[in-house]
Write a protein that binds this DNA or RNA. Structure first.
Length: 570
RNA sequence: GCUCCCGUAGUUCAACGGAUAGAAUAUCAGGCUUCGAACCUGAAGAUAGGGGUUCGAUUCCCUUCGGGAGCACCA
């Protein structure tokens, strides 16, 4: 971070050895950066307040120009930056990098090949808001990791075999004129809705009706055996689902995947690996099934091949890993999967250490929290889920209403982008591992701590820049006679960006960036409220134009890392 | 039953073991002849209960209560 070297130098000269960690003071009156002396006090064998005073005495005489003054407040040493010097550091080298949005961080993950596996919809099943969080989170993580220099492989593992398909097809076959209905469905979303409804039919029948359950199980075997009576229908509807996934990825704004994996391709391979492992005593026969004894390692036992001889999800994951390492030799694989599968993955990864030693330490379960529904009825529910597409459409409707009287270019596109921002931000602002209690009215807000609030900043800045007839080459850096507190606060926000992105990358948590951007936006709005740009005296005008342009660039870069597109006007 | 996660304003979320627990929203009171009011200013409002660990605990440990998830042939 800008300014840190200067401050560190001060502390070194005062005799501080070892790693230095800073904190941000609770408010601006207490300085711009602080050093807590608790650890130091132990070393120096005095109380923290005395240590702070000692630093002031040692270093207070000869400060670099960037640091205006230092103060000891209790156990803290507080540093006050010189606003003009800060401005020079943040905006002064503008001419050099004006064409580049923001310097990115390319050292942390340099040269690492990282696979991020996310989305994971299953064919013949609805794409719900849990998938939505998964897609949005995965997309953002990919961008953050790429920003750190990782070579990222985008992967997606989709379930196209299993009971859920039998349930769906059973539902379809129950409809007397299903052939007619199917031929009538043309659009991807119509087809997906049809599959969602028939899946719900099958699912409910499976739970409640013993006969239906048996029928569905029999159908499942037929599908496994590629029986002619259902194979054609399976292939057709599988294609429908995959087409719909492409449609929804596009709608959500998930870029193309480098590799789509399917359970149908890991099925046989997984079974083979487990059977081979059985001979090497990696797995064990138990009650007719083949299991891995996780309990030997403080985990729990899991079935890898069922007593019917079918590979379970666990076995398929062995096959999946084998494929992934063979094809890409990644340094890491992040599986973006809900936290309900945390224990499951521990067992699978442990088994992989034996079947695929290369994978050791490289398989990571990236846990994200549950999206649960707040109590109350929701008209949108098919079966027991809220559809991803419904949410996007509903938000779009509300924004259309808000923008009804607005006359702007490409209004339809703008509405879609604003809706997209609202949904994505609502899914990313909560810590990645924490649950989101979903309520439409509160979760996807369009004001306050929301996506549109952030886009609004960019639109406002665009509007000012347009009116200013701003041209980069006309803007040699100039210093105003004084810098307002709101300006300084905004500058302090801008310098933190790089560090924030690094933290988000380390924690694998986009919410770090989301929170930062919201704070930055608030800082901008405070500035905007009290510091006129276009009407300011010439030096201040140029300075402020640069300041808001920089703000816009950081905002756009940050939003980009969240997978959110900005708009010119809204 | 066992294991893991969570419990913070009415609600939805923050807070490397550190300064006065921050926001948003809802409520109330203000602010557009002024660069875009999807905005801004102000008021009121919270750490589930009880023990510990220490200079200091929302954070770590124990316990009670409350919620969620996982725990053998689903994915």
């Amino acid at each position: 971070m800008i300014m840190k070297p200067q401050v560190e130098k001060i502390l070194r000269e005062a005799g501080v050895i070892g790693e230095i960690e800073f904190t941000i003071p609770p408010n601006a009156e207490m300085g711009d950066l602080a050093f807590a002396c608790f650890g130091l006090a132990k070393e120096w064998k005095m109380n923290p307040a005395e240590a702070a005073k000692k630093i002031i005495v040692e270093a207070g005489r000869d400060l670099p120009v960037q640091v205006e003054r230092i103060e000891a407040v209790g156990p803290y040493v507080n540093f006050y930056f010189n606003a003009s010097e800060l401005a020079k550091l943040v905006l002064g080298n503008y001419d050099r990098d004006r064409s580049r949005p923001v310097r990115t961080i390319r050292h942390v993950g340099r040269g690492k090949k990282t696979m991020v596996e996310f989305a994971h919809p299953n064919t013949h099943k609805p794409v719900h808001i849990g998938h939505l969080r998964n897609m949005i989170t995965g997309e953002s993580l990919v961008r953050i990791l790429e920003n750190q220099g990782n070579k990222v492989v985008r992967a997606n593992y989709q379930g196209d075999v299993g009971m859920h398909i039998a349930k769906c097809l059973w539902g379809i076959l129950r409809i007397s004129d299903f052939r007619f209905q199917i031929s009538d469905l043309k659009r991807a979303d119509e087809r997906a809705r049809f599959l969602g409804e028939t899946y719900a039919m099958g699912g409910q029948a499976f739970e409640k009706d013993e006969t239906a359950k048996k029928e569905i199980e029999a159908l499942n075997i037929k599908i496994y055996n590629k029986n002619k009576s259902v194979w054609g229908l399976y292939k057709k509807t599988r294609k429908w689902s995959l087409d719909y996934f492409d449609y929804i990825y596009k709608k959500v704004g998930v870029k193309k995947f480098d590799r789509l994996y399917f359970e149908s391709e890991t099925f046989e391979l997984g079974k083979k690996i487990v059977l081979a492992g059985l001979k090497k005593d990696i797995f064990k026969a138990s009650q007719g099934a083949i299991i891995f004894e996780g309990s030997k390692y403080g985990l729990h036992d899991r079935v890898f091949i069922s007593s019917k001889g079918l590979p379970t999800y666990e076995a398929k994951d062995q096959g999946l890993a084998a494929l992934q390492f063979k094809e890409y030799h990644p340094d890491y694989i992040y599986h973006v999967v809900g936290k309900e599968q945390a224990d499951y993955f521990k067992v699978v990864f442990k088994a992989l250490e034996f079947t695929l030693p290369e994978s050791k330490g490289k398989e990571k379960h990236l846990v994200y929290g549950w999206v649960s529904l707040k109590e109350g009825k929701m008209s949108s529910r098919t079966g027991n889920v809220v559809l991803a597409e419904w949410l996007l459409d509903e938000v779009e409707k509300r924004i259309t209403e808000i923008m009804r009287d607005r006359e702007i270019k490409n209004k339809e596109k703008v509405i879609k982008k604003v809706a997209n921002a609202a949904v994505k931000y609502s899914m990313l602002k909560t810590g990645i591992g924490n649950d989101i209690v979903f309520d439409f009215n509160e979760s996807v807000s369009l004001s306050g701590d929301s996506g549109p609030y952030l886009l609004y900043i960019v639109a406002r800045i665009n509007s000012i820049l347009k009116k200013s007839k701003f041209k980069n080459q006309n803007l040699k850096f100039s210093m105003p006679t004084s810098i307002e507190p709101e300006e300084k606060k905004l500058l302090l926000g801008l310098v933190k960006f790089e560090e924030v992105v690094r933290e988000a990358g380390e924690k694998k948590d986009p919410s770090v960036i989301a929170k930062y951007l919201f704070g930055l936006a608030q800082g901008f709005n405070n500035f905007y409220q009290s510091c006129p740009v276009l009407e300011a005296e010439p030096a201040a005008r140029v300075f402020r134009l640069r300041l808001i342009k920089k703000t816009k660039e950081i905002m756009e870069s940050g939003l980009n890392l969240l997978g959110i597109e900005t708009v010119e006007e809204m």
